[in-house]
Nucleic acid binder design. Structure first.
Lengths: 246, 246
DNA sequence: CGTCCCGTTGATCCCTATCAAATGTAGTGG
DNA sequence: CCACTACATTTGATAGGGATCAACGGGACG
């Protein structure tokens, strides 16, 4: 018989805020746990969206496959985040695949309980709306970057984001706490593994990062932030006293 | 004294499905109407998200300004769509600016009524979640396109989308029913007005489109669709009878 | 009728994808 | 423990798609 799941596992997640303890306990009774090995999928693009998930431990990546066989990394999931909520948005199938990037522990619920649960807990839909809204804004930020920024800037941003989400202090610097390849960074930023490799090599030579196989350590956050801000961050140029051209 | 607004204005909108007539009538009593001239903003990026809107007539565009002065078109709003729902996602300020691209009629409500209204009408939050979910998926599709497709493909897609949303049959072909410049198409697709101009000139010479100042007519939808699908749509190449290489 | 804005087109350059090949690293099975 | 294999990474050479720079033409509107 499985140990009952502790309420504390989900109580502090954004999605479950402002909800009575009894509701959370009822929800946990219906949860299943899964242990995923590296490379295992939680669900696949195109499959019926029959479950939704919370990541408890480990890391997942969400990827989209294009018709012509390329891949795009939608995002990395960190512990405490929900994923696979297609059904909540009334999309019958998953628009992407979720893969474990190393051993991961997830909770899952059947999508069918979503409707009942939202009916009983008005806050739930609102929390979900907030979550999805945040993701929409992130997506728009990314569109803006792909549209207007250069590759180096975008790669710097991507690495900073990963460090923010999953950075771990070491004596060498801050390391991204899960295995990630040049190829995957390329798929996050709309470039190629070759260009990413060249950029990282350049940064390594300048002492900004150290990196090895599936491993990146940031040594100089501030320098990387400068790169992410772009070349054009001119200290507000001097103007005439009136602020008008003469 | 203003004419009372008819329930039929909003009854069929996605956002207001499955809601009792009385709720809609109550909502309409709190609505304000605004007539916007071409170029007028409904709201501006960075302002407090004090209202949300429904477009009744006309067309709006939603744009983001980047720190370095460039612009990205987030989307075009067509009649019947909501916009400016930042507050619903608990974002205190608008992440973008909404501008009328020609004379437009909008309804607006104070954001403050959102919370009360969602509390009273559980379906409302669910509908909003669906709407935002659709937009999130659209945004991801766009990220995928910016990451993996070439400019010609993306521009073709953008124009097809505009035609889908706002196309009007004419004897010359299907015309996009509002004024739109090369610059704006460039801002939708992450390219420059020069490249867009060259592409449209090429298509004009091949008879796919006619275009003039702020005006685009599609003559050969099928050809444009082919361009949007990309160069590589090979009819599944012949394979050995076993499907395996010999 | 003049002015502003939009569109067109040429010339040039450069960032980055592509092609190609070697090196390095983890894991595996004998 | 070592050889073997699969996969990551690095680096060079080359080419090309678009951006950028520059100039002109043309329609709309005051």
């Amino acid at each position: 018989m499985p140990t009952p799941l502790s309420r504390s596992l989900i109580k502090n997640l954004e999605l479950f805020q402002h909800m009575p303890d009894e509701a959370l306990d009822a929800l946990l009774l219906q949860a299943q746990t899964h242990l995923l090995a590296t490379g295992d999928p939680a669900f696949r693009q195109g499959a019926n969206a029959e479950h939704f998930y919370v990541l408890l431990h480990g890391n997942m990546k969400v990827v989209q496959n294009t018709p012509d066989g390329e891949q795009v990394v939608v995002r990395y999931v960190i512990p405490g985040e929900v994923f696979g909520i297609a059904h909540a948005m009334r999309r019958p199938i998953y628009p992407a695949t979720a893969l474990a990037v190393h051993e991961s522990l997830v909770l899952s619920w059947p999508s069918s309980i979503w409707d009942q649960f939202t009916a009983d807990n008005p806050h739930f839909a609102l929390n979900a709306l907030q979550t999805v809204g945040q993701r929409l804004q992130d997506a728009h930020a990314r569109i803006q970057q792909l549209s207007t920024e250069e590759v180096e800037q975008r790669v710097a941003r991507a690495i900073l984001r990963l460090v923010d989400q999953s950075g771990k202090e070491t004596d060498e610097g801050i390391v991204i706490n899960f295995p990630i390849t040049r190829q995957e960074i390329a798929e996050m930023t709309g470039t190629t593994l070759h260009t990413v490799s060249r950029l990282l090599s350049g940064w390594r030579d300048r002492g900004l990062v150290k990196s090895g196989r599936k491993r990146i350590v940031v040594c100089a956050m501030d320098e990387l932030i400068r790169l992410a801000e772009g070349p054009q961050h001119i200290a507000t140029p001097p103007v005439t006293s009136s602020g008008q051209p003469v």
